[in-house]
Design a protein around this nucleic acid. Structure first.
Lengths: 438, 438
DNA sequence: TTGTACGCGTTATCAA
DNA sequence: TTGATAACGCGTACAA
């Protein structure tokens, strides 16, 4: 009979029948809390006697207890709750631990661990008993304890500058779904476009996880290089860096914007606006550099830069400035800005692309469904998230990551870009508004 | 001199100068790994001597070592790497732990913990020493170990059916930003519209976190009720349940869709299409119920249901069916579907709202910027995420959560809905397409 | 104020 | 095969 009910065990103990020789109760099956076994005359010798949910008790097998065996037992100190049930716990959690399952099944914790993880071979009968015990107590292992023990969290983090931006959402989605296939989860950290916060956030997020995907287009370069070594394993998206061992997924914004301008030039546009992004953004810098070195096909086309931003509102608010500038086409920083501008033009009755061509960048899912459908440069954002995962996983797995990729945005000509009008749009400052019904 | 270089300590040991009385080295400052201190003639007495990154050594202060003091020392067993540096570790991690910092600063781990957490009062000089040591070793506490010790992860999870849907993205964003303000992070789990996966995913995600926000519009009701108790603390979004203690954030889709139909009826529409969502969706059921009990203002308007879906493509593909149905207005399941339909109508040259009014639902950020701007029913999705956090945090904090909310979508009349045409759109099956330039 | 010792719930190593 | 025990890294009563 390997397991005693605690009352039996106490009885045995009191009557000196077993002399604290319990091969079936070992130190490792202890449960937090439990009852107090007190020794008459010497309170310092009292010892906690853990009691399992099943009602079986564990008597610590050590010298203190053995010395108690030579003494008379006084009483069980009843727990304050009355102790009608044998179930006790100092923590409020109430969740079953591996120790509970071990006690219930009458085996060691190690065996429970083996059964749960199905690693080593276990006696089928024992395995069944353990599984039954686990089911009965509805046990599920603590991921935290597991992570501490094995040194992995099975979680990666992604730091994005703005969760409201569809582009980063797509990256997150690609990462999340790819990581899920490998049993990893994703923690998101949204820096809310605050580069200062970003550094702290990245450090903090990294500490909770096994790896990090960093999307930080606004972060200062020097700061980034200082930060990256502490973040490894880390994958950098939309930025380049000189730090070795950091896979980089770069988008060639320069060539993308060049192709866009060339596209418009070939449609006859000679004066084109670049509706710029946030000045601190690495992506904006890259686009400007691209504009500084146009393709041969774009020869003769002049580009005027109009400062703007990255959001809907920015694009929406820049309409008048674009119209005043006397351009026949507006190349926007991204699709979101382009959509804002498109909306504003629609409200003003400016026909796109008849009077003004408008293009975006990124090819977010919505770009295909604007009216007119938005000409843009396609950046496979979801794929970017997947590729980030491929590299991060390789790093986590001790493999060499796939080579860095330099994504070349693909031009997506749609309905929002058309032949340049004979006269630029400023010739129609008072063009009749289309009827609106509200 | 409280700290010895390990070579010094060894020397002292060999020469019997210190007799293993190192008050500055205690058992608790051990570092994993380290060198082997061997006792001549009795290998069983050998003991591991941890060595700190700083080059100081720790000699375990126990009986085994004391007995060794009575013996001659033979040698340091050199680690296989040659051991030129004193830095050793069995784990590859290389990250500094609290023990390293304690050794470096010459204090106990408890003191380091106190300094790092700024809880108890510490001697300013010691505090400074600890901070310097931490900075030198670029120490940052292990969140995992911390979580295990305090029983909290400072992380919550959100399970969403589809990360590609802007609505859930907004909820995630609201949750993430609100949680961040309280120092919590968010783990995302994307069930990829798979209700079966959802149950497992929710359980799994919950185990890693302190709480859960569940957005599961497609999950079977019975299954949900069985699942919820295991998930507590949990907040349910967009669903109702009878389980007590589970805060619910419900959106009153029924009244929202009623208001929408009434809006169109007042614009003179007499035959209206409901472009339906996924049939398994609780949100679609609610909308249909709303349609079954129209408002008085909508009297005389007939609603035909056209099965569709929840995505762009669904809306895009349903154009012909809508046109054939002879309606003058299409009430779409959500904004995404409406945008798909809007794009398809634009391609076909059908004027919105002159020939056909189109409305959406949710008021995603893009709805304001479609052309024409989309009439929709506004569901404050970001706010929903924030409210979910308020309730989850209250639960985590042991407070009573704020009362359940029943969000009433607010009608947002924009340009995509207008007076009913004299003739329904099917009268213009071959309406001239607007010129497109590509 | 500082240090000791133990608990948190696992996994992993080794001996039986 | 199974069990005992030491990590894993940190927080925290309690003692000094």
């Amino acid at each position: 009979m390997p397991v005693h009910h605690w009352a039996e065990a106490l009885e045995d103990l009191v009557h000196g029948l077993v002399e604290l020789d319990f091969p079936w109760v070992t130190g490792q099956n202890l449960v937090p809390g439990g009852k107090q076994l007190r020794v008459h005359g010497d309170p310092s010798l009292s010892v906690r006697c853990p009691v399992y949910p099943t009602g079986t008790a564990s008597i610590p097998e050590n010298d203190t207890v053995k010395s108690q065996a030579a003494t008379r037992l006084l009483s069980w100190a009843e727990p304050t709750d009355g102790g009608s049930m044998a179930r006790t716990s100092t923590r409020a959690s109430g969740r079953a631990t591996i120790a509970h399952v071990a006690a219930e099944a009458g085996v060691s914790r190690a065996t429970v661990s083996r059964v749960m993880n199905g690693l080593s071979t276990v006696d089928p009968a024992i395995g069944e008993r353990v599984r039954a015990a686990a089911a009965k107590l509805s046990y599920s292992p603590s991921t935290v304890a597991r992570s501490l023990a094995i040194g992995r969290t099975q979680t990666v983090a992604i730091v994005v500058p703005d969760l409201a931006n569809p582009m980063f959402q797509e990256t997150l989605r690609g990462l999340s779904r790819a990581a899920a296939r490998e049993g990893y989860r994703v923690l998101v950290a949204d820096s809310v476009e605050n580069p200062a916060e970003e550094v702290i956030l990245a450090r903090e997020a990294r500490r909770r996880c096994d790896g990090l995907v960093l999307v930080a287009p606004r972060m200062d370069g020097a700061q980034l290089e200082e930060l990256l070594p502490d973040l490894a394993p880390v994958v950098l998206v939309n930025r380049t860096t000189g730090i070795p061992g950091v896979p980089v997924l770069a988008v060639d914004y320069a060539s993308g914007i060049r192709a866009m301008v060339a596209h418009l030039a070939q449609l006859g546009h000679r004066r084109i606006a670049y509706v710029a992004g946030p000045s601190a953004s690495a992506g904006d810098r890259a686009r400007r550099e691209g504009l500084a070195h146009p393709l041969p096909e774009a020869a003769g086309a002049e580009v005027v830069v109009i400062p703007c931003g990255a959001m809907f509102e920015d694009g929406h608010s820049v309409r008048e400035e674009v119209l005043r500038s006397g351009v026949t086409a507006a190349v926007c920083f991204n699709d979101v800005v382009a959509m804002g501008l498109l909306g504003a033009l629609h409200e003003a009755g400016v026909a796109v692309p008849e009077q003004l061509s408008v293009t975006g960048f990124d090819d977010i899912a919505f770009a295909r469904y604007t009216s007119p459908a938005l000409t843009t440069a396609s950046v496979p954002q979801t794929r970017l998230g997947e590729q980030a995962w491929d590299r991060l996983f390789a790093l986590l797995d001790g493999q060499a990551p796939p080579p860095d990729v330099d994504i070349n945005p693909r031009l997506e000509p749609r309905a929002s870009s058309g032949p340049a009008p004979a006269l630029p749009s400023r010739a129609f400052p008072d063009a009749p508004h289309r009827t609106r019904h509200t």
